[in-house]
């Protein structure tokens, strides 16, 4: 009887050992890393979740027919990367990239095919000079009694304290120029930190919706994007904002904010677009990619993906002034008016 009891308990202990590490026993395997599997995963995910197929009139199934025959098991990682990068480039979207440890694919045709009208050397020599103020990410200088502010990237954080200083300086200036040419975007909050100092009331500046399923029409409802006035000091005078084709993503959102402010005006060339919020994902071989997963439109439901038009277009070669930045000069003329 005793030996049976011992056996019984021994079996229990064996069972305990058997059920240990269950998490490893049931762990699924990672998917295969073959070029075909990687291609299929990327193509399918973009097919299901990319947000601008209809607006851009892109037949993604046709692209599969074109690119799939190029995929075979003998491809090395560099060849595969090139084919997948070319596939994604068909989307003509600055928010679409394939990222590996050795390269990042991109399509920059939204600015590469256009003149930028932005000569940094000229701006520093003629306008900012050497004694400009550095207010966080902003470079600021008085130009003909206007405050000229140059903001290179919305990735650089703009705090309330930085904006307090800009608003304080406006006591001594007659108008404000904000230069966001070739600003490739960054954190939307930085754009809101500026716009919230330029209005006394809440303003809806755009509409946004997100992909909510694999069908072309699967989107959330349009929801308003708002500028809410900041509680601190504000500047409610005239504001000129300078943009070009390389003003992208958050800078396009910022241009749209300026567009709806009654005392502000956009000068230069339309922005490059970038109205879709980038979604990040990973392929079976560890490469990551991003793609637009939302749409943003102005209040007439015109897509910001294709850029925000300026109030004063300055792309005619006749507009240019030798030795001067004709965007800044046009803004100065309007502010003095």
């Amino acid at each position: 009887m005793i030996s049976i009891q011992h056996l019984y308990r021994f079996l229990i202990l064996v069972l305990v050992l058997i059920v240990s590490s269950c998490e490893e026993i049931i762990q699924p395997k990672d998917p295969q890393i073959s070029p075909r599997v990687v291609f299929e995963h990327l193509w399918s995910d973009i097919f299901n979740r990319y947000s601008f197929f209809e607006e851009k009139q892109i037949d993604w199934e046709l692209q599969k027919q074109i690119y799939e025959p190029l995929i075979h098991e003998g491809l090395d990682q560099f060849e595969l990367f090139e084919i997948l990068g070319d596939l994604l480039a068909e989307l003509e979207d600055g928010h679409v990239n394939l990222l590996s440890s050795f390269n990042r694919s991109r399509n920059w045709s939204w600015f590469e095919d256009f003149p930028l009208y932005y000569d940094e050397q000229l701006i520093y020599d003629e306008y900012l000079k050497t004694d400009y103020r550095i207010i966080g990410p902003l470079h600021a200088q008085t130009v003909e009694n206007m405050l000229y502010v140059n903001y290179r990237s919305f990735e650089r954080t703009l705090t309330d304290q930085h904006m307090d200083e800009v608003v304080r300086l406006m006591q001594f200036h007659d108008g404000l120029i904000i230069d966001v040419r070739s600003n490739g975007g960054g954190n939307l909050q930085n754009a809101l930190n500026i716009a919230s100092r330029l209005t006394e009331k809440e303003i809806v500046y755009a509409l946004q919706r997100f992909k909510s399923g694999p069908d072309r029409s699967d989107f959330t409802h349009w929801s308003p994007l708002r500028i809410s006035p900041q509680s601190g000091e504000k500047y409610l005078g005239k504001v000129a904002v300078l943009t070009n084709r390389r003003s992208y993503s958050t800078t396009t959102f910022f241009a749209q904010m300026i567009k709806v402010l009654p005392h502000a005006r956009l000068f230069g060339d339309q922005t490059g677009g970038g109205g879709g919020t980038p979604v990040y994902a990973e392929l079976p071989n560890g490469w990551t990619y991003r793609f637009s997963g939302s749409q943003t439109a102005d209040l007439d439901e015109v897509q910001l993906e294709f850029g925000v038009e300026v109030d004063e277009l300055l792309t005619n070669p006749m507009d240019q002034i030798p030795g001067k930045d004709h965007f800044i000069e046009a803004a100065l003329d309007w502010l003095k008016d």
Binding site: R49, R209, F210, K211, S212, G213, D218, T220, H221, W222, S223, V279, G293, S294
Partner: peptide
Amino acid sequence: YLTSPPDPFLH
């Protein structure tokens, strides 16, 4: 489907 908050929180 895409975002951290569930869709009904987006509007």
